[in-house]
Design a protein around this nucleic acid. Structure first.
Lengths: 135, 135
DNA sequence: TTATGTGCAAAACATTTGCAGGAGT
DNA sequence: ACTCCTGCAAATGTTTTGCACATAA
């Protein structure tokens, strides 16, 4: 719940954050590892996992628990939803301003204390749709 | 996309489906395995996974790709959303009739072919909220 | 100086798969 | 009979963890 605990500023953390900020995709931990390794060849995969987890906890980045087998990470922390292509598994952002509204609707029909929600759309991206038409 | 392919009716499949239909929780594959094993002690975990996957593909049951480390399964296939307690990880159903509306909004702002969506709420369930107050 | 972080390798999980024998149709 | 299915165990893929050394504060 606190912002930045006693977290030291290490080269590894700086570079992980920089590399994540460079891309608009939503890379998996392993993809971040590959990106970072180009600048820090000796970094360990465990370090990448540990730091992505810490940064997500402290709210510096977003950890997306979308479908599929791997978690994904996102340097954009403004509230938004995601859409995943069922063909190529790519994940894109999508913005529709209905958060408040949906939380209110949910609060009305169940006895949980609602903290938030996430919408994951599934569909077929432009690229994959074209490939289908091509053949 | 087809309903039931050339799927044989085996004891294992029958019992997996029966046990899943008995509960309103959203058990993980391993929890289904435990339930089924009480009636079929020699069933293999692989068989449970294979069949849950097949049934989900053919639309007999729902496979929930909610957050957390394990997938969950649900015998209720009518469209509904889910809410997960951040304390105890329990998953409940939640029904708010906004599917069409949300798909339309999303379709308007992105160039995917929208196939559907799922909303996962997070919150604190009644039980956990009470435990907090108790102490 | 000392608590925290790192690299490395092993462990822990969840899930999938290969295969030889078994069961539904 | 002829597939398809199962149990078992091993393999795979992702994430976590233990530990000795390194490094930011």
């Amino acid at each position: 719940m606190d912002q930045l605990p006693n977290m030291r500023l290490t080269t590894q953390r700086q570079i992980i954050l920089e590399e994540l900020a460079k891309v608009t995709s939503h890379p998996t931990a392993n993809e971040v590892y590959d990106m970072v390794r180009q600048r820090l060849p000796r970094i360990g995969l465990g370090t990448v996992y540990r730091n992505l987890e810490l940064m997500a906890e402290s709210g510096l980045i977003l950890k997306l628990e979308v479908g599929g087998t791997q978690k994904r990470f996102d340097a954009t922390i403004s509230p938004h939803y995601h859409i995943r292509c069922i063909q190529c598994s790519k994940v894109d952002d999508i913005e529709i301003p209905v958060q408040q509204h949906i939380n209110a609707l949910a609060g009305a029909v169940c006895d949980y204390l609602i903290l938030g929600h996430h919408i994951e759309f599934s569909g077929i991206c432009d690229d994959c749709a074209q490939k289908k038409t091509e053949h």
